[in-house]
C-alpha cells in the first residue's frame, strides 16, 4: 500500500484530446450498434422538468403540448426513460474519471478577472440559453452535433456550424470571463 497522504494526491493532466475523442467515438459507436440511437443529454432534463411540473400541477403539464410529449401515457413513469438513465450514467462516469484523476474540487471555473457571483450569474444565464436553444434545435451538442454528425444528418451539420458560429461571434464580449 502506498503511504502517500491524502492531501498530496496530485491532480493528473487531462487525456490527449485525440485519444479521448477516440474513446468517446467508440462509446458512441457502441450506442449505435447496441441501441440504434446516439447519445444525448438535454432530453433527460426535459423529462425531469416535465415530470416535476406534472407532479406539482398535473393539469398544466398535460395541457402543454411541450410537456405532454415527454410525459407519455402514464402507464410507466416518464422517468423510466433512456436518456434519463444515460445521464445518470454520465454523472457516475464523470465522477469516476474525476476521482481517478484527482480532479474532484468544489471550485468555480473562471478566468482571474471576474468575480465569483458574476461568473455564477453568467453560468445560470448560459444554462438558460442552452435550455432554450437545445429544445429549439431538437437536441444539444451531444444529441445533435455528436450523434447526428456521425450519422451525416443534414440538420445536425447545419446546427453544428451555427453553434460554432454563434460562440465565436459572441466570444469577444465575454473575454473577461475566461482570459
Amino acid at each position: 500500500m502506498s503511504s502517500t497522504p491524502d492531501d498530496s494526491l496530485l491532480e493528473k493532466p487531462h487525456m490527449n484530446p485525440y485519444w479521448a475523442g477516440f474513446g468517446l467515438g467508440l462509446v458512441l459507436l457502441t450506442s449505435f450498434v447496441v441501441m440504434g440511437r446516439g447519445l444525448g443529454a438535454s432530453g433527460a432534463f426535459t423529462t425531469a422538468v416535465a415530470t416535476a411540473v406534472h407532479s406539482v400541477a398535473p393539469a398544466h403539464a398535460t395541457g402543454n403540448a411541450f410537456y405532454a410529449e415527454y410525459l407519455g401515457d402514464g402507464s410507466v413513469s416518464p422517468l423510466k426513460d433512456w436518456l434519463v438513465f444515460e445521464v445518470l450514467g454520465v454523472f457516475v462516469g464523470g465522477f469516476l474519471s474525476g476521482a481517478l484523476g484527482n480532479r474532484l474540487r468544489f471550485t468555480i471555473e473562471k478566468g482571474p478577472r471576474i468575480s465569483n457571483p458574476a461568473r455564477l450569474a453568467l453560468a445560470a444565464a448560459g444554462g438558460a440559453l442552452m435550455g432554450v436553444g437545445a429544445k429549439l434545435a431538437l437536441g444539444c451538442t451531444s444529441g445533435q452535433a455528436l450523434s447526428g454528425g456521425a450519422l451525416l444528418n443534414l440538420g445536425s451539420w447545419i446546427f453544428m456550424m451555427c453553434v460554432f458560429g454563434g460562440a465565436y461571434a459572441f466570444a469577444w464580449f465575454l473575454r473577461r470571463q475566461w482570459l
Binding site: M1, S2, T4, P5, L88, V92, L96, A99, L100, L104
Partner: peptide, 29 residues
Amino acid sequence: WVFVVGSGILLPLLLQFLQAQRRIQSTWV
C-alpha cells in the same frame, strides 16, 4: 440493476476500494 446493484453496491465497492488504497480522495459519495 442500476440503483441496487450498480450504484448501490458495485460503484461504492469500487470507490471504497480505491479510497482504502489511497488511490483517490476520500469523499462521502
